[in-house]
Write a protein that binds this DNA or RNA. Structure first.
Length: 607
DNA sequence: TCAGCCCCTG
DNA sequence: CAGGGGCTGA
């Protein structure tokens, strides 16, 4: 819900929040630098929203402001420069009405505006275009927030690094980033409150902040806070960044490298966490070590990261997420789990009849979005998202890979070994039928969830469809026999039953449709109604249940279809369809026509 | 009471 | 295809 603010305010300290306070100076901001200051023009509502979200977020852990959020959206609600702002509990705790501090913020803001502008004009800063759909109302404010947030760190880093020469700075970029990456977990751990002291530890160390790394380059310009030099500094800073695109590029390269490493580690961690790929005693240990950041951190991270990359993701994220009610938390958590399996067992798809044509496409799309989002996250980091460190990138990656997994509906052409040994992942179960169950981040739970994460896949669905050619009303026993590779729970059973219910629905709809067509077409005799393999009705059914047409539909099904069609025809022709429950009689007839499912369905796993 | 089913909706 | 509401029979 506050994912947007989780991103943009990530790391926004209470001090930064205080900068949201009424600031008459805002209206006097130098707007001569085209389009920079407009982001500061917010309506009071946006400000309020952001304050609130900042408040909620800051109570969790502090993160960094992501430049992603600094959308330079020039036209939003201009004319609200002097918008009134409502103090929030958080902001009040950090000197909300400290006007002198505000002046300082205003001055800093003005400086950073130019910095940001310089950065946006450099290649690879596309994240400046980030606009999240759900945050459009406040992203302008986020930009402002960004602008306000940066200077304080900038100031620190400037002081810290003012003695470092430029050459050293250049050389230290990589080291800084690396150190900060390695430091991030600790940062997350340490940030749980609103206090400045609880902020990421890079505040205390000049060498552990990516932001520092990003800002120390111009930290030398920050040695003086005197506003009379602001104009000069603005120009100089802009020139600095604009004349040093190679620095940006360097940072980008470094970050790319680090991101790759983070991804690799993430994969390793996932593998380690897979219960069946390791000896039992190691499971929990590995999980605790690699997979279970503190619950709140974990949740926040995923949220934040998804927000970071949210701009170009909505297509995926807004995709119909069936069975999941609490999208933000549950879905992501599920994805994270799914992703682990997805990665670990992402076998190349054999030309199995059980594969869906659309799967690859979806995967490619997701991959695209993923890459784009990752780039955004990367740039966000580059822009100073210091807290978006390794862990978060892992989560981010996990999130996105799990989006892929999700988009494939757990489809795996080849079932992984553990699929038979264990049951349904409670994550899936939660997705299936327990959407309101809160997911615990406890590693053991997670692990168990993972272990059980072998629910129904697209291959199961495919198999069920083929089974429909034999039985329209399979009993639970038959289902259990045919899906013996799934641990049956009430949810799984219900799911399978629901599938067959849906199959029947489609089946009967087709029957009714064709029966009515036959009547309209003037078919006088029910004997004239036949269902052959060339018939349109059969093609429609076959397309639905046997899309790949790689399954030899039994003749018996044709017979049943023909009987059904005739039943509908007769019922409609005699006007039984006026009775609301006229189909029930037909259902009763068809129900008795079920045949045995071939042994192959019972012997082979669904995958 | 609950599983199972149908129907409707998205 | 899923979710949910309503109905029904055990």
């Amino acid at each position: 819900m506050y994912s947007s603010s989780n991103i943009c305010l990530d790391g926004c300290t209470t001090e930064h929040l205080s900068s949201l306070q009424p600031d008459p100076m805002l209206s006097n901001l130098d707007v001569s630098n085209s389009g920079v200051c407009v982001t500061l023009q917010q309506d009071s509502e946006n400000i309020k929203m952001l304050q609130e979200s900042a408040y909620y977020n800051s109570s969790g852990d502090a993160g960094s402001v992501c430049s992603d959020q600094l959308e330079l959206n020039p036209s939003r609600d201009a004319g609200h420069l002097s918008a009134k702002r409502h103090p929030s509990p958080a902001s009040s705790s950090c000197g909300l009405h400290d006007w002198s501090l505000n002046s300082g913020h205003q001055a800093k803001r003005a400086r950073v505006e130019n910095i940001i502008k310089g950065m946006t004009s450099s290649p690879g800063m596309h994240c400046m275009d980030v606009t999240t759909n759900q945050h459009e109302e406040s992203d302008g404010m986020q930009g402002s927030e960004m602008i306000q947030e940066l200077p304080s760190h900038q100031e620190r880093s400037g002081k810290i690094h003012s003695q470092v020469t430029r050459k050293q700075l250049e050389g230290q970029h990589f080291r800084h980033l690396r150190a900060s990456f390695n430091h991030v977990d600790g940062v997350d751990d340490a940030t749980g409150g609103n206090n400045e002291e609880m902020r990421p530890t890079w505040n205390n160390s000049p060498d552990t902040s990516p932001r520092d790394a990003c800002t120390d380059s111009y930290g030398e310009f920050e040695s003086s806070s005197s506003r009379k030099y602001q104009g000069w500094k603005k120009v100089k800073l802009m020139n600095y960044f604009q004349s040093k695109p190679e620095r940006i590029k360097l940072m980008a390269d470094v970050l790319k490298y680090e991101l790759s490493r983070a991804v690799s580690r993430s994969v390793d961690a996932i593998f380690k966490s897979m219960p069946l790929l390791q000896t039992p005693p190691n499971i929990e240990g590995n999980v605790k070590t690699d997979m279970s950041p503190q619950p709140p951190v974990c949740r926040d991270n995923t949220l934040r990261l998804s927000c970071c990359g949210n701009a170009e993701v909505p297509d995926v994220q807004t995709e119909a997420l069936s069975l999941v009610v609490q999208k933000p938390q549950l879905e992501r958590a599920e994805k994270f789990i799914l992703q682990s399996r997805s990665r670990a067992h992402h076998h190349p798809k054999p030309p199995t009849p059980f594969s869906y044509d659309s799967s690859l496409h979806e995967e490619e799309l997701s991959e695209k979005d993923h890459n784009t989002a990752r780039q955004h996250a990367l740039r966000c980091f580059q822009d100073g998202c210091s807290e978006v460190g390794q862990t978060k990138f892992e989560m981010f990656d996990a999130h996105w890979n799990s989006v892929k997994a999700r988009s494939k509906v757990n489809s795996r052409s080849v079932r992984s070994p553990q699929s038979r040994t264990v049951s349904v992942d409670p994550m899936i179960l939660q997705g299936l039928c327990l959407p309101h169950v809160k997911i615990e981040s406890d590693s053991l739970v997670k692990n168990n969830l993972y272990m059980l994460n072998e629910g129904l896949t697209t291959n199961h669905l495919k198999k069920a469809k083929l089974m429909f050619f034999y039985t329209r009303y399979p009993s639970s026993l038959v289902l259990k026999m045919c899906f013996h590779d799934v641990q049956f729970t009430r949810c799984i059973t219900s799911q399978l039953i629901k599938w067959f219910s849906n199959f029947r629905e489609f089946y009967y709809i087709q029957m009714e449709k064709f029966a009515r067509h036959a009547l309209i077409d003037g078919v006088a005799n029910v004997r004239g109604l036949t269902v052959g393999r060339e018939s349109e009705l059969f093609r429609a059914l076959n397309m639905h249940y046997n899309k790949a047409n790689d399954f030899q539909v039994p003749d018996r099904f044709l017979e049943v279809a023909e009987i059904t069609l005739r039943e509908f025809y007769i019922a409609i022709s005699v006007g039984k369809d006026r009775d609301p429950s006229w189909k029930k009689a037909i259902y009763k007839v068809i129900c008795k026509l079920d045949g045995d499912v071939p042994a192959e369905f019972k012997n082979h796993p669904s995958g």
